[in-house]
Structure formats: structure tokens, C-alpha cells
Design a protein around this nucleic acid. Sequence first.
DNA 1: TTACATTATTTCATTTGTGTTACAATAAAG
DNA 2: CTTTATTGTAACACAAATGAAATAATGTAA
Lengths: 246, 246
Amino acid sequence: MGHHNMDTILLIEDDKLIRQMLRDTLERKNYIILEAMNGKRSLEILEHHNVNLILLDLTLPDGNGANFIPHIREKTNAPVIIVSGEYCKDQKVKTLNAGADDYIEKPFDPDLLIARINANLRRYKDIKPQSSVTRDRITHIDDQIRIGQWLYDPSRYQIFTQDGTEGELTSSEFILLGTLIQNAGRALKREELCESIRRDSYIPTPRAIDVKITRLRKKIGDNTTPPKIIRTIRGVGYMLSEDAIG
Amino acid sequence: MGHHNMDTILLIEDDKLIRQMLRDTLERKNYIILEAMNGKRSLEILEHHNVNLILLDLTLPDGNGANFIPHIREKTNAPVIIVSGEYCKDQKVKTLNAGADDYIEKPFDPDLLIARINANLRRYKDIKPQSSVTRDRITHIDDQIRIGQWLYDPSRYQIFTQDGTEGELTSSEFILLGTLIQNAGRALKREELCESIRRDSYIPTPRAIDVKITRLRKKIGDNTTPPKIIRTIRGVGYMLSEDAIG
DNA sequence: TTACATTATTTCATTTGTGTTACAATAAAG
DNA sequence: CTTTATTGTAACACAAATGAAATAATGTAA
């Protein structure tokens, strides 16, 4: 995909006009832009997207921007460039110590900003060759599928044995199993599995998946040690064995 | 940490004012917004980011929006909602056939738009388990890669021999190997390797890498003296031999 | 060769990750 | 509303992985 320079920049800036100005400037240089009007939101965005560089305003409605740097660092190592309203040497030192990578004052020359951004991106890439996580396409199950000694029946939201005996999966266990089946032979992280069973406005902790997996294993009879159908991928999550389906 | 509803919406719309209006409306509902002013750029953005839903204007500078649907579908299965300037039944049918999921006309009621968006997101999630972007340091190697006599399989977080025998790498050994593969032919400093496997808030001593390398060499069968696959670069660190991969 | 520096390997206490149960919170059913 | 089923968290036991330290082996320079 040889588009060079398609890096993503997250703008954390409360002033809408400045955001818009920055967006215009940077989009002209072919960057992909994400905007956050405050610190809290920026963290939420980082939870969902890989960004290559962050422009961080110091005066945010929910606190001094510098205070967010540690939280940003928990989520990404992308370079953080501070955009400060007025020059203040103490503050500069303080923010750089806090983990910022560069510091630039308003008003700034657009070309200078671009230059700084490029320099930081270059440095970042030298240290960490890293790109966005790939996302496999997942197909919908519409036919019955054999899973172990069971038949997974999407139309009835339940599993059955050959002789018609009905399983006892709850709906979320059924969905979880479906997700595993759709991705058989691929290790799924707890977070991915969480997504598949989450109810609106509530996301369980990753450990809740362990409990569900335990129950699921028991109900489908995956009782060898270690389990053969739903395998544990230590440090990652779980994977349905390809041998188990058909 | 309930970030529910933190879905990402890609706006494909040439009119800046409408883009801005949509952004305002949707950001108020906590969606993350990406903007593309034309079809070509939208495809580039999709190359880099996972989006949950797409709002597609039909009148774009580089062609009718409907023509982009197949290209969008090559990159994502996220629902596409057409935003049309004027109502035209033929066009509606045509775009829905082309793969759009919903159709809404300008001018539209913001609440209606939100309702349609939510409905489509819900439907999409019923079908596809959605993995949020994760930030772990797992390699982004997409395909299996030969390494020595092994096959490095990112989807299973494990290495395998030609005949399917499974390796015994731990997840961090697997990640370490991935880092070496990504940088094959380049000597990596211990500090760099530390980075790739470090757990949150803990940085091991560089010597810990030696131990991991020893274990890794043993497990991949790199047992010549000196080792040929993972070579020691004295005074620097380690380097994966380019001959070993393919 | 020796003397020194760097890396390899083993050991083992510590840390981390997972399986499981019990229970509380929540949703569903009567 | 009460009862029941489902669900997720907390707690604990256990297993695996990890890395610091000690020791052995190897490379390097003189």
C-alpha cells in the first residue's frame, strides 16, 4: 500500500477554530486527523485507534495537558508534541520531563510545525517499527456447524447432539461460541471476545471471559486437560481448535 | 471505564460545512469522527483505520459515491449509510444493491440520523464481533513466515513445522521473535528488544534478553556454534539472519 | 598466551496468568 | 412484586513464565 506519509495525528485542543486550522494545514499534507476537544476524550480515542503522533494543547477544559501525558503513555508511545499558548521555560522543562517529545509555541509557523511533526515521526519509526493491528474479516455463520460432538444451530440459538438432545447454552455463551467458531484456528484476545458479548453500555472485564469459557467448556464437554476444543493461548486469550469444527 | 458507544464514523463528504455540521452532531453523541473530502481519500483512511460505520455522500468530486461502495467493501464490512442530496427512488435501489446498508436524504433530522446510525451499528455488531484497536506489542506480520525450519503464524501466536507440529513458544518469546523477524538483517540493541516485550510499568534489565534469546534459540533449534539464525552481535545485541527467513 | 570483557546457561525465588468456585448484582420470568 | 436464571466480580489455588544472580563459556585485545 505504498502511500507514504499517511500517518495519523491526534489533535487534543479545546479551541474549535484552532482545531479546524490545524486540520486544514495537516490534511493538506495528507495526514489523517483525529480530534479530541479534551483530555478525557483523547484517551478514549487512543483506546480505539492507532495514532502516529499527538499534538497536545496545554490548556484543556479538564486540566493541564501535561497531566495527561502519563495516561497517554499508558496507551501509546507515539510522540507527543506540546502546543503551548505562551512560552514559559519552566513549563517547557516540566512537560518534557513528563514525557513529551517536543514543544512548540503559539502562534506557530505552519511549515515549522510540519517540520517538527516529520522529525518526530521519523524518530519514532526508527525506534519502533509498528503499524496498526490487522483485522480479519469475519463471516456470519448461517449453516449448522459441527463443534466437537455438538451441532451449532444459529437458527435456534442452541447446540444439539446428533440424536437431538438440546444443549444448555445461554445466549451469551452461544454468541461467544459463535465468535470462536467464526475465528477457529485464530487466537482471540479477551478484549475481542468481550466485544462480541458486550451488552450496550456495559463492557465486562477481560477476566469475565475466563468464567464464561469455563462454563462453556463444561457445557460442550471439553474436559480434557488441557482442553482440546477451546484452547488457552497463554498471554493472549483463547482459540477454537480447527480440528474441533467441520 | 465505560466507553460504550465509542464507535468511529467515517464521513465521506466534499462539502466542508456539512462535514463540520455532521461532526458536531455526532461528536456530541460521543462518536469518533474521521473525515474524507473525496472517495479516494476515504479508501486511504480505511487502509489505516478501523471504522464502525460510514456516511457516504453521493456527490463527490471524484465521482458518484455509489461507485466507491465496492472499493469500500474490499476494505471493511462496516455499514454504509448513503446521504443523498435529493430523493430518487431509482438511485436508492441502485445504491442499496451496490452494497449500501441504509439511505437517508438531505436535509435530515439529526435525531433520525443518530437513530439510523445506532440501528446499523447494532446490526453490524450482531453479525461481526468487533475488535477494538489494541495496543499490545504483538507483531503486525500478516502472513505466515518461514523462519529456519519453522512457520511463524501470527494468527495462532505460535510457530509450526511443515508437518504441523506445534512449537512451544511463550507469548513473549513469540513477540520477541516477531520483532527480530521484522528487523531481519538489522542488529537490534538489547534495549530495543526490551521495549518490544516489556510489560506495563516494568522494564527488565538488558541481561534478561540474553536469557530469552537462549530459550528462543533452543526452542527454534538454533543450536549451531555460533548460532546461525539468531546471531549475536557482540557489543550491540542480536540480529536475525536474513537467510533464515523467507 | 594472559587478562579482560561480553555473552551463554542454569538455577530459583518471584511474578504473572489461568481455572475455578462462591457470591452479589442484574436481568428475566412468573 | 417475588422467584429464578444469568452474569460478572472477587477470591483463592495452582501452573507457567519470567528475570536477577551466579557460574560457565566464549570472544577480544595485548
